[in-house]
């Protein structure tokens, strides 16, 4: 594990629990008493097999899924003390998401896809547009700026998704299996960009089943049956 060089903790997930119940099926503990912190400039990875609770943890940390117990702090904000609308607003300006499936909007071009978060945060402006174009340039997508997602390779799609996650200058980036659909070369490129974000002061929580990724993380956790092992 590499040395940690950060001044402040950006994200604290404190003793969160989440269980799923469905009819008469026995309760399944998806996440059980997990505590984790991510500082500014830090990339923290959580690895584990499919179904171990990684995505549930990430969704709770990202303010999308209310935990049964525990707290999530984004900076000084207790995310689940906020109203849903306030949480949406905080998510729009302070959090970026990258998913395995990219979830690009199929009828919008690359530039528009990158700029979509500015609609949610009502922050579209000339500077946002400039920032989007810089990200597109930085991620080597300038030749694809007017292309629709269907016209892009999978690597390009994930880079667009990453640019979209970063366009609002978030403090924290959540990545759920960001390389799951990519070949090794593209996976390496995407991981490099994610690392660069952390190197520039961002906080990254990355969940994956791919243990090879852990070599890029400042800290790496193993997760099994809803619990962190280390």
């Amino acid at each position: 594990m590499r040395n940690i060089k950060y001044a402040f903790v950006e994200l604290i997930v404190k003793n969160v629990r989440k269980a799923y119940r469905s009819g008469k099926v026995k309760e399944v503990k998806a996440v059980d008493s997990v505590t984790i912190g991510v500082g500014k400039g830090e990339l923290v990875s959580v690895t584990g097999q499919s179904g171990c609770g990684k995505t549930t943890l990430l969704l709770m940390a990202g303010g999308l899924l209310t935990p049964d117990e525990g707290e999530v702090f984004l900076g000084n904000l207790d995310m689940y003390k906020l109203s849903p609308e306030e949480r949406d607003r905080e998510r729009a300006v302070r959090i970026g998401f990258v998913f395995q499936q990219f979830y690009l909007v199929p009828y919008m071009n690359v530039l528009e896809n990158v700029l979509i978060p500015t609609i949610g945060s009502n922050s579209y402006s000339a500077s946002a547009d400039k920032r989007a174009r810089e990200l597109i340039l930085r991620f080597n997508l300038e030749g694809r700026i007017d292309h629709k997602p269907g016209q892009l390779s999978t690597g390009e799609r994930q880079r667009v998704a990453l640019a979209r996650a970063l366009v609002n200058n978030p403090g924290v980036l959540f990545a759920d299996e960001p390389t799951g659909n990519l070949d090794d070369d593209n996976a390496e490129v995407v991981l490099r960009y994610i690392s660069d974000f952390a190197a520039e002061g961002g906080a990254v929580l990355l969940v994956t089943h791919d243990k090879r990724i852990s070599h890029r993380a400042h800290r790496s956790y193993q997760m099994k049956e809803g619990r962190l092992l280390n």
Binding site: P106, Y107, L111, E112, L115, I119, S125, D129, I145, D146
Partner: peptide, 25 residues
């Protein structure tokens, strides 16, 4: 303040609606 991007479109809800309508004519 909203400005037009390279494609001459404004980023707002109506752009999403318009693009989706064009996509699903």
């Amino acid at each position: 303040m909203e400005t037009d991007n390279k494609t001459g479109r404004r980023m707002n809800i109506w752009l999403i609606i318009k693009n989706e309508l064009e996509h699903k004519k």
